[in-house]
């Protein structure tokens, strides 16, 4: 065999693989890592989900108090109620339409910096939370570990809101306001694209 670094490394790799034994926890809960990863990725891999959640944070930042702090506290709970319907297998009509539509509407709100009364904004975001929650919840029964999956998608959604709120810090500067509104345009564009795709037969 030709003496190469690659060949030299093979036995080392084999020995290292031997050390990489699976953790031998005699534990009741299995699939935590898999469930957690799939839960964390679920809101991120759907692009319309992702931008809509960031837009919620952006809009909260634009609306200021009390929306900026009511939103991250109430959204997860309302989303969980939508998820419960998904878990129970209750159908929610036009879920994909609702998710894509939420990205479009929230994007427009941010792009135009619209400020409806607080209750109207809360009701709108709450309605969207139900759609997003339903889509995540419908996957719970088939998750490798439903609890870990739940922890994952709630955490990912919260972190996406946080991302929006952090981008919203730019609002302190006049140029930052334009950046945030440009983000709104991008979100609306993704929403429009996703909405169009819901009408295209698979």
């Amino acid at each position: 065999m030709k003496k190469t670094l690659k060949n030299d490394l093979r036995p080392l790799l084999a020995v290292l693989l031997l050390f990489y034994a699976a953790a031998a926890f005699a534990h009741a809960e299995t699939g935590v890592a898999g469930g957690l990863v799939s839960g964390l990725l679920h809101p991120v891999l759907g692009f319309d989900h992702l931008v809509a959640m960031v837009a919620v944070g952006l809009w909260g930042a634009q609306l200021g108090k009390p929306a900026i702090w009511v939103l991250p506290i109430t959204f997860p709970v309302v989303m969980a109620i939508g998820a419960l319907a998904g878990v129970a297998g209750l159908p929610l009509p036009f879920v994909e339409f609702g998710i894509a539509g939420s990205a479009l509407v929230l994007g427009v709100m941010v792009a135009l910096c619209l400020r409806p009364p607080f209750w109207a904004a809360a009701a709108m975001v709450g309605l969207f939370a139900l759609f997003h929650g339903h889509a995540h919840g419908a996957e719970v029964p088939s998750a490798v570990n439903p609890l870990a999956y739940g922890v994952g998608f709630v955490t990912a959604t919260g972190l996406l809101h946080l991302a929006g709120i952090l981008i919203g810090v730019l609002l302190r500067w006049p140029a930052g306001d334009k950046v945030v509104r440009a983000c709104g345009v991008a979100v609306a564009a993704v929403g429009l694209l996703a909405l169009t795709l819901t009408f295209v037969p698979a």
Binding site: P76, A83, L84, L147
Partner: peptide
């Protein structure tokens, strides 16, 4: 709360 609702429901 959200995690509890989802897991409890499941």
């Amino acid at each position: 709360v959200a995690i509890g609702l989802v897991f409890g429901g499941y």
